[in-house]
């Protein structure tokens, strides 16, 4: 468990000069995950999306690690291929047998919850020694804030708009972390950029396990959430404190809440600062707001019920 002081001695594997928006949660997530990766070299893969596009605008790369982008739905399959090559080249005697390299695939929620779910599921089931990190900002941000299956109920998105007939996204969000836990892989965790200690500890564990590991990292998008640039981390913290985004891990099948929430706050404290939810605070949407609160309470209780201690 490294302190911040200790972490500063590790290499920051994401260089500045990338073209993500000011206040982007994705790059915060990447920095924290890769600081948690430890000393071994890391090969990074990334799905098409904001993170990939903005960090690799030819001829500039922000990656201080070997990096590969293939397409949108297949960062897990692509990195599984890189990891397989590592094994195959070792078997061929072209890479020393004791050489250690870590592999990580990043994808946004569109690239992970939606179009990349099959590729992710397959790679995890096959048992590749790799970490998959979803940076969840709850919509297709790269294409301009379209709803994904990670978008919260009631949120405005450009494909789930607000009008007399509809109040934003009508469906509940998919619980991807639990889907990944159901794969029975060695390590699954849900983390938030607001809780760096929890996140880097989880990244350390994810990279340390032999076999596949999955992390779902909450990473707000100021542009898509309609929040000021400086509120990225603050809003992420509110998601944790309201129970909207419980921080937990599933290690060899054992569930554990890693950050306890004392005096869980009303979900309103997470929703109200965000322009994408502003319609929920009209008097006529009081029932919808109550429904969202009930959904959060139920989901939070369900996670807690599975956690030990």
């Amino acid at each position: 468990m490294a302190t911040l002081k200790e972490l500063t001695h590790r290499e920051d594997r994401l260089e500045g000069g990338h073209r993500l928006c000011a206040g982007c949660g994705a790059s915060i997530a990447v920095r924290q995950v890769l600081l948690g990766a430890g000393e071994d070299p890391v090969v990074v893969g990334c799905a098409t999306g904001c993170l990939e596009v903005s960090t690799t605008i030819y001829p500039y790369s922000s990656w201080k690690t070997p990096f590969i982008h293939n397409a949108f739905e297949n960062s897990a399959a692509t990195v599984s291929g890189v990891e397989a090559a590592f094994k195959g080249l070792k078997a061929a005697g072209k890479i020393p047998a004791d050489k250690r390299i870590k592999f990580v695939a990043f994808g946004g929620d569109g690239g992970t919850y939606d179009i990349g779910l099959q590729s992710l599921s397959g790679a995890m089931e096959r048992g590749h020694d790799m970490v998959y990190v979803c940076y969840d900002n709850g919509a297709y941000m790269n294409t301009g804030i379209q709803r994904s299956s990670a978008t919260p109920k009631g949120a405005w998105a450009t494909t789930a708009q607000v009008g007399v007939a509809q109040q934003g996204k009508q469906q509940r969000r998919k619980d991807l972390t639990q889907i990944m836990a159901a794969h029975g892989i060695p390590y699954v965790a849900q983390a938030s950029i607001s809780h760096w200690k929890d996140l880097t500890m989880k990244a350390e564990k994810a990279f340390a396990v032999e076999g596949p590991a999955f992390m779902n990292v909450f990473a707000p998008c100021p542009r898509g959430w309609r929040i000021p640039y400086d509120k990225t981390v603050e809003v992420a913290k509110a998601a944790v404190q309201t129970g909207f985004w419980p921080l937990y891990e599933v290690e060899d099948g054992v569930w554990r809440q890693t950050v306890k929430v004392h005096n869980k706050k009303p979900v309103e404290e997470f929703l109200r600062p965000q322009g994408r939810f502003k319609h929920l605070f009209k008097p006529e949407n009081a029932d919808l707001l109550a429904e969202i609160q009930a959904d959060v309470d139920r989901a939070y209780a369900a996670v807690l019920a599975r956690c030990e201690g």
Binding site: V43, G45, I68, N70, A71, E73, N74, A77, T78, V79, S80, G81, V82, A84, A85, F86, G88, L89, K94, Q118, S119, S121, G122, A123, E125, R126
Partner: peptide, 20 residues
């Protein structure tokens, strides 16, 4: 690698080939 689709077959091939 026993991939879960042909899309992933070629995706994994691309990753592996880029790997060397």
């Amino acid at each position: 690698i026993t991939v879960e689709s042909e899309h992933s077959a070629m995706s994994a091939c691309i990753g592996a080939s880029a790997a060397g």
